[in-house]
Design a protein around this nucleic acid. Structure first.
Lengths: 205, 205
DNA sequence: AGCATAAACGGACTTTACCCCGTTTGCTAT
DNA sequence: ATAGCAAACGGGGTAAAGTCCGTTTATGCT
């Protein structure tokens, strides 16, 4: 007989069981090491050794060092978004879109400050700048809320990108400048207030 | 006699002549190599060798690989700003602040697209995200124009940061996503238009 | 169960950014 | 001039990211 054995073409197929196990184990190990040593001192060799796996495996799973941090952040992102989508009214459904947008910005600022170190580490120096989702979920949420606010003819997709950048950009700037052990609260408040002002300006009739 | 010979304390003093010479020579050499091989293939050893200098010197001058690209961009930035500050009216002085702001955004988009590769390479992966001026000049210009527009009580400093991010963020996002050999013009136009819409929204009475 | 195959694994190897420190050189004050 | 010295230079050394490829393993099919 001939070989029509080709199962599928090009399709990536499902992730194998051992792959899943190793990925989760590596992420858990990475979290441990991060808590103990900070992002700066996490090396690929170190992670592999501590996890009891080969270095090749680490790279196969995450592609790049930054990939690990991106994966970690994706988890946090998802938790955050779930909280946003199903939280109590100022943030979650039930309030006016504009109020939700304002509340979202405030929450997002807190979130970013909380996870600033991993976020930073997830930025890829080499090649494409904000590869991956980066802030995709955030942008989509903002985009959704904009759709519910009555704005004149406007390119909502572009506006969503702009607002996302206006929300996250300043944070990244501040977060990198200082180590903010104390200025933190002030920056958080100022940024949140600035977001509110901006959104109200943009969305007023 | 005692030694009041201490000339100054902590002050960095002036840059020595050989240092200046080497810095300029390295920048020129880097430009050559960039034109021939692209940013990706510029290595510190390669640069040092071609410039006929030691590797240590390259690092002493620029601190880091990204530092070279930052230095190159600083040159371009300065040229750009000069052009903006003393150019013909829609961009330079003589027009309404709001119109200048819009024109500035358009010019800036073009500038960024033109220099996207070096800009990207200048982003430091390791440590502090947008270290250095990055977009400081841009922000200051926007800040200045905002000051000339009559806006109600508003935190102009924060607003300037937000608008700068809203202008540059989307570009970085798009520029990284595609290699834009063709979509370029479309993206350029859409971003510029988006900027105009945003600014008009923010600044209307 | 047994087989075929694509995917995953491991770890040696390569490349490159960045550090260190002994040596050299341009300034400045005598 | 020239002595003293801070700054600059050079290039070998180190560490860590990322690649390669031969070996092992999970999975779907018969």
């Amino acid at each position: 007989m001939d070989r029509p054995v080709l199962p599928l073409v090009g399709a990536p197929r499902v992730e194998r069981a051992d792959a899943v196990r190793n990925r989760l184990h590596l992420l858990a190990t990475a979290r441990e090491m991060l808590a103990e040593q900070g992002t700066e001192n996490l090396t690929m060799d170190g992670l592999a050794e501590r996890a009891g796996l080969g270095k090749g495996t680490v790279f196969r799973r995450f592609g790049t060092r930054a990939g690990i941090f991106k994966a970690l952040m994706e988890d946090e992102e998802q938790a955050f978004q779930k909280q946003v989508l199903s939280g109590p009214p100022p943030l979650g459904p039930g309030a006016e879109p504009l109020d939700r947008l304002i509340a979202y910005g405030r929450a997002r600022v807190g979130f970013m400050i909380e996870h600033r170190e991993i976020t930073r580490a997830g930025l890829d120096g080499r090649q494409s700048v904000p590869t991956g989702s980066e802030a995709t979920l955030s942008r989509m949420h903002i985009r959704m809320l904009l759709g519910q606010i009555h704005l004149g003819a406007a390119d909502l997709d572009v506006l969503a990108v702009q607002l996302t950048a206006a929300l996250e950009g300043p944070l990244l700037l501040y977060l990198s400048a200082s180590d903010l052990t104390e200025a933190s609260l002030q920056i958080e408040e100022r940024t949140a207030q600035g977001w509110q002002d901006l959104v109200q300006r943009v969305c007023r009739p």
